[in-house]
Nucleic acid binder design. Structure first.
Lengths: 120, 120, 120, 120
DNA sequence: GTGGTCTAGACCACT
DNA sequence: GTGGTCTAGACCACC
């Protein structure tokens, strides 16, 4: 996996995990990869993965069974989706509109882009 | 001026300066505030402003006349707009579409949001 | 290490680092001294070393692994040599020829100097 | 006239003046352009030219007749040539040889360059 | 332990 | 008055 330099790696791993859950690759109530395994497959230090899991645990997206590993919370998927949707609609979108304005790009131009992307 | 904690102050000053230029408050070929003046008015250390100006100078947005101060490059405004547009269309937009997909939000929903915002 | 007063210290450190790489004392892909360590051994402020490393990073001679330190780029040595060679042949050398001309020194005189120096 | 950013403008004007004298465009014992005139033709501040003339005066290359302007010293040309020659042979040349070494460029390569340049 | 940012303050060269 | 460099020291995030 490739990491951007702009954000902390552990937060990018948090994102990665959330995406796995949203896409149901990691299913509710089921075990997720161990800290070590994920560290190996992502080629990062185990501490960094641990920190990401900590983060997810605090947001009650995953939980720990001692000696067994980490598991996805029962309603994690919907929780994440709700939170992300709010954050997207209320923060990212308005910010995008402001950028659109500043750069003098019309919403039509964006739609065109969108349609082109759908085809490919 | 208020600074977010998420990005380094000097980068926020870079943004600030670019916006001044885009909005033609700082005009092409004209002098911009001296390092120390801007530092005072933004309530930051002069070194921090210096660092921002350094950055802008490397991107050929401003240049220095020795002993006189910094000046906006002749075609700074278009340079910035072009660069920002490319960055937006090629990086932010695709990323937004991916988020749209992931969160299962339709482009129509976005359009609705956009229209509402225009009215207000 | 001693620093000349004619050039900024941080640029002299850039030179110093490039020479270490050219001479393969700092090897490709390997870690170079930490900012603080080098600062101590060169008896300069850490910020000054940081600035030099910044410079080298922008020229893609070194890169940073977060939390670990700075490393020499895989092809740094050849990159530096190529750049220096170009700069020497296209800038310094023509300038030297002009000086030769102006001072009415023949190329033979230079060759003699060179040979004497080789013997000693 | 174009000025490099690496050296102070006033020193570049000193160089400029010395070259005029070496090339006998400004002749021994004769008047050189007034501070103001030179400032206008070089598009610099008069103070900067003044500083350069000061410098030349201290090295006894030019001298001032009050109310009349600056004049080239009687033996300025030979003085300059001697000084420059020493500086070139004892400082620049050895430094160039060291660069040649470091970049692994042979003296033959330089000679080739020199011959090519002569033809053109 | 690693870099990265920021401050306060100093000193200097240049225009 | 303008930038440019440097120091000393602090605090923080990250690995």
């Amino acid at each position: 996996m490739e990491f951007s330099n702009e954000k902390p790696i552990y937060l990018q791993i948090v994102e990665f995990a959330m995406n796995r859950i949203i896409l149901s690759e990691w299913k509710n109530e089921q075990k997720i990869p161990s800290v070590r395994d994920l560290a190996v497959s992502l080629e990062v230090n185990a501490n960094t993965v641990m920190r990401a899991y900590d983060h997810l645990q605090q947001q009650e997206i995953i939980f720990n069974k001692r000696g067994l590993g980490f598991f996805v919370h029962q309603d994690a998927r919907t929780t994440i989706l709700k939170a992300k949707k709010i954050q997207f609609l209320e923060e990212e979108l308005p910010l995008m509109f402001r950028t659109l304005d500043l750069l003098d790009i019309s919403i039509d131009e964006v739609n065109t882009y969108y349609n082109n992307q759908q085809k490919s």
